[in-house]
Computed example of a mutant assay.
Amino acid sequence: MTSALLSLTEDAWQGRATAHRNRVERYAAPYLARRSAGQKHPVEDFLFTYYTQKPGQLSRWHPGPGVILTGAAAAERLGWKFYRAATPAELSASEAPDSRSGVVLDLEDFLLQRKEAVDFARIILGRTAARPAQFGCFGLHEWAMVYQQEANEVRHEYLELRLGSSGTDQVVEDNRIRCTHFDAYRFYTPQALGLNELRPTRENQRDLEQPGCLHANMDLYKWAYKLSPALPSELVMDCFELSWRIRAMDMQASPYDLAQWGYPPIQIETPAGKADYVAHQRGFGAEAAVLRGRLAVAVAALTGA
C-alpha cells in the first residue's frame, strides 16, 4: 500500500480528537441522559437508535488513511482495530522524519476485511448521484407507516397523530405514493404496501436510490461510518449533522403532532405544506450532493480507483 506521507504531532492530533469529541458530545450527551432516565425523543434519538453506530464509537476520532500519529498517546491505538505501527520507511517518508515511532491506519487489512462494504458504498454513491432527483414524495412514507394500523401495532405509542387515525388514512389515500427507499418502504403497514407505486427491495436498492430522497441523503452518514476508521472523522460528522437536520424536517412532515417537542408541523396535506416540503427537500438535496461527492472521492482514494 502507499506509504503514509503526513505525520501529526501528539498535540496536533490530540487537539483534533478533542474537537471531535466535543462535536459529538453536543448530540450524544442528551441522548445518553434520556436513555439513563428511560425517556424517549422522537427526533433526536433516531441517529443513535436506528443506525448501528453507537455514541462511544462515534466519539473516537480517526484521521483516515495516510496519516501517522506520533507521541506516547498514539500507542493506545495499537489495540484498536485496523491500526498498526508505522514502518521506518513510512516514518522517513512523512513530513516528520525525525519521529522514531508512530501509529497509522492499516489500510491493507481494512480493505481485505471490508472490501464488500467499500464496493457497495462506491456503487450506491455513484449510482445515486447519477440519477435525477425526485421531489414529489412529500414525506408520505411516514404516513404509510401508520396507515390503517392496528391498535396492537401502534408505531410510536407515546405520540399523537396530528389528524387522528381517519384523517391520516385519508391523506394516504388522497395522494400518490412513490417511495424509492427500501428502508422506509419496509416499515409500511401491510395495508399500505400495495399503495406504493414501486417495490423497493434490498436487492434493487442500488437501482432505485435517487438524490432527492431524504432517507437516501440521511444514509450518507451510514455509508460514512461503515467505512470508519478509513474515513476522517470530520467527514463522518459532516454526514451525521446533515442527517440530524434531515431527520428533524422528516418528522415535521410526518403525521405526528410534535409541537410540544418544539417541532412545528409541515402540513403536507395542504398545497402550502407541499411547497414548503419541496423547498426543504431541494435544499437538503443540494447539501447532500456535495457530501456524496466528498464521500465518493474518499472511497475511490481508498482503493486507488
Rank of each mutant, 00 (worst) to 15 (best):
D11S: 13
A248Q: 11
L112I: 08
D250M: 08
A133E: 13
L235H: 04
A37L: 12
G71A: 10
T70Q: 09
K40L: 11
Q149W: 08
R114N: 14
E269A: 01
Y31K: 10
M1E: 06
N204I: 12
A75V: 03
S228H: 04
E203R: 13
W80F: 14
A4E: 06
G38H: 09
D109Y: 00
L47A: 10
A275D: 15
A301T: 04
D45K: 04
Q260N: 05
Y27G: 05
A275R: 14
T2M: 13
G194R: 12
Y158T: 03
R127L: 13
A296T: 03
T189V: 08
S165V: 12
V103Q: 08
K81D: 15
G64T: 04
E153W: 00
I246L: 05
Q39T: 04
A253N: 00
A184D: 07
R35S: 12
I268W: 02
R282S: 10
R131E: 01
Y158V: 05
P30L: 10
I68C: 10
R131P: 02
L231S: 05
Y221K: 09
A129D: 10
N196G: 10
A121M: 08
Q205H: 14
Q191A: 15
I266C: 11
K54Y: 07
A224F: 09
A75L: 13
A224M: 09
L91M: 08
R186Q: 15
A4H: 05
V154N: 03
S166Y: 02
A230V: 02
M251W: 07
L163F: 14
F182K: 09
L112H: 13
V290L: 14
F284P: 03
E173N: 10
R127W: 04
R245N: 02
D169P: 03
V103W: 01
E234S: 11
Q148V: 07
N152W: 07
A300W: 10
M1W: 05
E44T: 13
L291G: 04
W244S: 01
W261K: 07
I177Y: 00
G15F: 02
D174M: 06
P190S: 02
F82G: 04
L8K: 01
Y188N: 01
V278I: 11
Q134F: 00
E157K: 14
R77Y: 13
A289C: 06
L193V: 15
A29V: 15
W223C: 05
Q170D: 15
V299G: 09
Y263A: 07
S36Q: 14
L78A: 14
A301C: 00
S233H: 08
D169L: 09
G102H: 11
V290R: 12
A272I: 02
P55T: 07
A121Q: 06
E150V: 01
Q205T: 14
R122W: 04
Y221A: 11
E142A: 00
I123F: 07
L8F: 12
F135N: 01
F48R: 11
E173L: 15
E203A: 15
L235P: 04
N196R: 03
T303F: 04
G56E: 15
N152R: 02
R77F: 13
R84I: 02
R178E: 12
T128A: 05
R247T: 13
A301F: 07
L214E: 06
W244C: 03
P97Y: 01
H20T: 07
L159V: 06
M218Q: 10
F82E: 08
L105F: 06
W223D: 03
P255K: 04
A133I: 00
D257F: 08
S243A: 15
A300E: 14
